[in-house]
Design a protein around this nucleic acid. Structure first.
Lengths: 113, 113
DNA sequence: AAACATGCTACATTATTTGTAGCAAACTTA
DNA sequence: TAAGTTTGCTACAAATAATGTAGCATGTTT
């Protein structure tokens, strides 16, 4: 799968509008999960593998390369970490944490009835 | 692929923490794209297919079922549309539109140097 | 120098996505 | 009212992506 560079053809868009490139990226297995799991600080490859519970090393490496190319993460001495852009992105999606709990609760209540 | 119900085992989590169920869902091909494309109002199946430019009907239908089960969209007379929960979700992620443009620009500038 | 840890790669198996064709049901039009 | 059209979707084979396990090279600890 080619890396969804804004400007290039990506899933969902011939023009490569930045939002489409981003949605393509985030829509790939584990991309969001990796970003989410890096929110709590840098992690080495194996650490990150554990945070992600059951990601395969093959895919982890593939995603890390993509995220690095797209400058959302960087690889420093302390391990992989969100770049400043990656962190901005995380801040946008971070309300999903709280939201998802409410959503889960609503789902349960609707199941009852 | 089983629908990532909060509480069940999902990709990335044995416990099915709601956020993990959500990230699993959103990390599926086209899930984010469909939500994004419904932001501008209801659409019939074929309309939605066009908004998504090149989604296959098979997958569109699969995702629609998932999103419906998880109460993020609903199917009314006017077609498929975001449910009130789906809309809340969209509101959280909607800043990605603007953010992605800045990101794309930053990427371009870094390419130069 | 032997044992261990780390960051990956190889690769076969399995799962997901695509793309095309087309069908049944509901609506139009003649 | 009978012949199109359109719509919502299913079938299915081919292509692509993800998983899981093994393991290797390099660096570090004892």
């Amino acid at each position: 799968m080619t890396i969804p560079l804004p400007g290039a053809q990506v899933r969902g868009s011939k023009t490569g509008k930045p939002i489409m490139a981003l949605l393509d990226l985030l829509g790939r297995t584990w991309a969001l999960g990796i970003i989410w799991n890096l929110r709590s600080g840098p992690a080495t490859f194996r650490e990150l593998q554990q945070r992600c519970e059951k990601i395969s090393p093959t895919l982890l490496n593939t995603r890390l390369k993509e995220l690095k190319t797209l400058q959302l993460i960087e690889n420093q001495e302390s391990g992989y970490q969100l770049s400043s852009q990656g962190f901005d992105l995380f801040e946008i999606i971070s309300p999903l944490g709280t939201w998802s709990s409410q959503w889960a609760q609503a789902l349960m209540e609707n199941k009852k009835s």
